[in-house]
Design a binder for these strands. Structure first.
Lengths: 235, 235
DNA sequence: CATTTGAGTGCACGGTTGTACACTGACAAT
DNA sequence: ATTGTCAGTGTACAACCGTGCACTCAAATG
């Protein structure tokens, strides 16, 4: 073994050297997948593989080589898809925030989202179906490398202002000025985010169960809304 | 250069090999510092140096060698103080949480802490005088290695239950059952923690100013307390 | 005084990392 | 049919990593 990795011997079994087909184990039959499609496939493998590797580590803790390895390509080929690992990270941020925004849109469409329970249900479902992405966001929001942290912060601010607009349309909040609305939106978002973290940790030894987490969050949200109903805007 | 670091040439200038005095640049005159005191000094240098190195990176991103280097000792000497880097991390958690608890105690002693402004002032002061420790806590709370994350979670739960007891002594909350009190305490703590993060980021390009952060937090806290005053316990 | 202790040293090791470089060969376009 | 593109390859290197080992020598111990 000269220097580099010599794993995935099954895929390398094809003896011809520099065989392009070695990458991303060709699962589908023999259909001649288009070039662009193949590229997109390994790109996705890189992104998904990174999230997988982050099950128990932070983004800074996974190496370019590991990522390439799990995607089934050689380290240097990574650069065909991303200029750096940070760039991959930023893409993951965008992907995650797209899910978050989708969730807000779902909540908007659902009738009576002003009841805390309904919105929480949506949150729980989204977290469960996109665990890895939410874990990535919560883990890197404060802990990540500066570039990624800034990317999340920016997207987060956008998210808050979207919710601010939503709030402004609710009966009884029309008289509120923008600052108060944003203040409340910020409080709601940060509370919801704490729920996300608890959900990801839930049903693990030494943690509260999912039901408990949701029940508590629901009461917290109701308490906030109760405060809002008594709030004297502009103070 | 065979393998290892060859930095800090000034300290190595003393030509005698394996000179113990090379560690932790002897700043004070020539007083014969006791052995235990010297050990404590490098131990502190290791802890402080780690926090310093974490100015722009997460705990997982600093290496044992770097830590030893900034403390002025050789990498292997690190093990005279900690069995592993994780152990050092856990000590940092304890140190940080001691500060947090001290803050709660300060707040308890201050009259009229039920007014949001007073408690926030204490928070801001503590964050400013212990920036590095708070940065460590906020960065590793969700992003850190499992061992440290668990340590912080445990201490955090303790902190919430301390605040729960405090709340139970406030006029008008005596009728609340324990679950409701804890729910409110949890909400307050997570909101305050969000403030800490904002404070650490404040006055940096692209972020809100400290005054804005405090003003918003104060209103958020007032909103929560308003909600509590109208809360119907046991629902 | 002689002896023990232990914080610190220097060297060495096997391993991993990011990335530069020259390459190949299947697909796409001409 | 010829050519160009470019995702993927293998080799190589210098830097860094954690840690084992045998050491030194000032301070503490008796």
């Amino acid at each position: 073994m000269p220097d580099d990795e010599r794993e995935h011997p099954e895929v390398v079994a094809v003896l011809s050297p520099a065989n392009t087909l070695t990458a991303v184990s060709q699962s589908t039959g023999a259909e001649p997948e288009s070039r662009a499609a193949r590229k997109e496939r390994t790109r996705k493998a890189l992104l998904d593989g990174t999230l997988e590797l982050m099950a128990d580590r932070s983004f800074a803790g996974v190496s370019l080589r590991e990522i390439a390895r799990t995607a089934g390509i050689v380290p240097t080929a990574f650069y065909r898809h991303f200029a750096s690992i940070e760039e991959l990270g930023v893409v993951l941020v965008e992907e995650g925030m797209r899910i978050l925004r989708q969730m807000l849109r779902d909540a908007r469409r659902t009738p009576s989202t002003k009841s805390a329970g309904a919105s929480l249900d949506i949150l729980v479902r989204q977290v469960r179906t996109h665990e890895a992405q939410f874990r990535f966001l919560s883990r890197e929001r404060y802990g990540g490398v500066p570039e990624i942290r800034r990317a999340i912060a920016t997207e987060m601010k956008l998210f808050v202002s979207e919710l601010t607009v939503d709030l402004s349309r609710i009966d009884g909040l029309q008289s509120w000025d923008h600052d108060d609305l944003e203040m409340a939106a910020d409080l709601i978002v940060s509370t919801m985010f704490a729920v996300v973290v608890d959900l990801l940790e839930a049903d693990r030894p030494g943690s509260r169960s999912e039901a408990e987490v949701v029940a508590r969050a629901e009461r917290q949200l109701r308490l906030i809304m109760l405060g809002m109903s008594g709030w004297n805007p502009g103070t």
